[in-house]
Design a protein around this nucleic acid. Structure first.
Lengths: 156, 156
DNA sequence: CTATATGCAAAAACTTTGCATAAGC
DNA sequence: GCTTATGCAAAGTTTTTGCATATAG
């Protein structure tokens, strides 16, 4: 999904294609990681002489509502958003890099295989589930490797 | 896990067994659902002449740290806590009733079966995953049933 | 007796609202 | 032209901090 698909989604949702919206979406697409509203604001203020933080908050929420952005949950309870390439149609999850914050889509999910068992055990009805997978992305894994190598070199 | 196990956990964590702590844990154990700090505060103020909201916030966080409580995530980004019967030792997830907020432990998880596939696909290293399962608990399912029955009776 | 816990007051952090003006369609 | 979007100021809500006092161990 690229910029054009997002614009199409805005149209469908009857949201106007404004410069700020395009910039917000572009910012997330370019960076591929999660950000707080304030971080988005600070970054985009360089491109817009006047840019209100409330505008960012409002837009992020609207973009989340229509499935362009998703929320990332962290233990501080601040708002974190990331671009969602798959939209709301396909149920999927997200992988979040603990080091750099990169967010990737994960379509693979085998939860349905055990949902019935859980329902039997708790005598409940499962409606949905939300999963956030955490670890190191490929880039940060490489970095860890070379850092470790560096460490060994020093020891030698 | 009951009150006594919690007290044991407090000891291990070098937290003192204060009346407020016991009351907070007791409150969660009795009600089995999630609450905001404010809700806990309002409920416990009936038992304590003086009880500060900061005390509640501090205790809830500490109890979460040592694994007696867990956080429940909701779309409003407020703090929600529930008792965690299994503690931090065993990896597990939680089922949250969308209607009444009841929280149940779910030990069953087959995520590890696909973790490797996800790692291959994204070329990443998975460290952890967090899942929140939502639906209707047994009690709320029954209620839905009888409400539906009532509705049908009226139609007849 | 010492270290931790608590109440209270106050501040801080984060997010939302209101409204007049601007801009997309 | 009508409707939605935005900036700015201001308020609202939730959570945290500081510190003196109280209390558990």
């Amino acid at each position: 999904m690229g910029s054009n698909d997002c614009i199409e989604m805005l149209r469908k949702a009857n949201l106007k294609i404004t410069p700020r919206r395009k910039a917000i979406i572009g910012f997330f697409l370019q960076n591929g990681r999660y950000f707080t509203p304030e971080e988005v604001w600070i970054a985009l203020r360089e491109d817009f002489k006047h840019l209100g933080l409330p505008t960012i908050y409002r837009n992020l929420r609207e973009l989340e509502d229509i499935g362009i952005l998703i929320r990332v949950f962290r233990s501080d309870q601040r708002l974190y958003y990331a671009i969602c390439q798959l939209g709301k149609g396909k149920k999927h999850h997200h992988f979040v890099c603990k080091k750099c914050g990169r967010v990737s889509e994960v379509e693979l999910c085998n939860f349905d295989d055990i949902a019935g068992d859980i329902e039997s055990k708790l005598n409940c009805k499962i409606i949905s589930h939300f999963m956030q997978i955490e670890g190191l992305c490929s880039k940060c894994m490489e970095e860890e490797m070379s850092e470790r190598d560096e460490g060994q070199k020093v020891k030698e």
